[in-house]
């Protein structure tokens, strides 16, 4: 689904990734572990084209990233940023943000459906019309996940998606991801503390000293 081939990346003079090669297949649930600062976030940014490799190439279903329109790619391989950013006033407008950028149909989603999603994410459904700036970190993180979910991507690239969540919410989110995975979505999750996040059958990768290797 996404293949990273011989990718090297540096910020200016500072090398972050050296000769990284690995592939995530359609329907995979993959977890990438590594120390903070090891380049996990950079790797995710490369996988959704917020950065381009210094050398090497990334492929989406065999097509080099250079040949895919960036907006199309980012809608298919969607990144959940590490820090949840709210840009609109209300929770509702934040949830519906991706529809504003969609070229064709302004898909209409009823508030009832949005409330159901909030409840599913263990959030109070009354939050929908609240000011997003007033939410806690953990709440924002879940709103950001729902926002991504509503865009309906094929691959979920998740950067520390549970770092602000308590144990129960973490379990709920991972359970949800597993369900999405069984429905055919590909999940690529990055974390520095991955204990408790790894469902059975998940593929494990480790990023160390700029290299990625698969753990058995």
């Amino acid at each position: 689904m996404i293949e990273v081939r011989s990718v090297t990346f540096s910020y200016g003079e500072c090398p972050v990734l050296t000769d990284v090669s690995f592939a995530v297949h359609r329907g995979d649930f993959a977890v990438l572990r590594g120390e903070s600062g090891s380049g996990k976030s950079t790797l995710l940014r490369l996988m959704c084209k917020l950065e381009t490799p210094t050398t090497g190439c990334v492929f989406y279903e065999g097509i080099p990233y250079d040949e895919i329109p960036p907006r199309l790619l980012r809608r298919k391989a969607a990144l959940l940023q590490q820090s949840p950013v709210m840009v609109e006033e209300t929770v509702r407008d934040n949830l519906l943000l991706s529809f504003r950028f969609a070229r064709s149909k302004m898909k209409s989603i009823e508030d009832r459906e949005l409330r159901a999603l909030l409840t599913r994410a263990r959030l109070d459904h009354a939050l929908l019309l609240k000011h997003a700036g007033e939410l806690s970190m953990g709440q924002k993180q879940r709103i950001a996940f729902l926002r991504l979910l509503l865009m309906d991507p094929e691959v979920f690239l998740l950067d520390e998606p549970v770092s602000g969540l308590d144990e129960e919410s973490t379990d709920a989110l991972i359970g949800w991801l597993v369900e999405l995975n069984t429905l055919g979505k590909t999940v690529f999750l990055v974390s520095h503390t991955a204990s408790g996040l790894i469902p059975p059958g998940a593929r494990l990768f480790r990023l160390e000293n700029g290299h990625v290797m698969e753990e058995k």
Binding site: R74, L79, M151
Partner: peptide, 8 residues
């Protein structure tokens, strides 16, 4: 970058 990630 958030907006870019959401297809903007």
């Amino acid at each position: 970058e958030l907006r870019l990630c959401l297809g903007a």
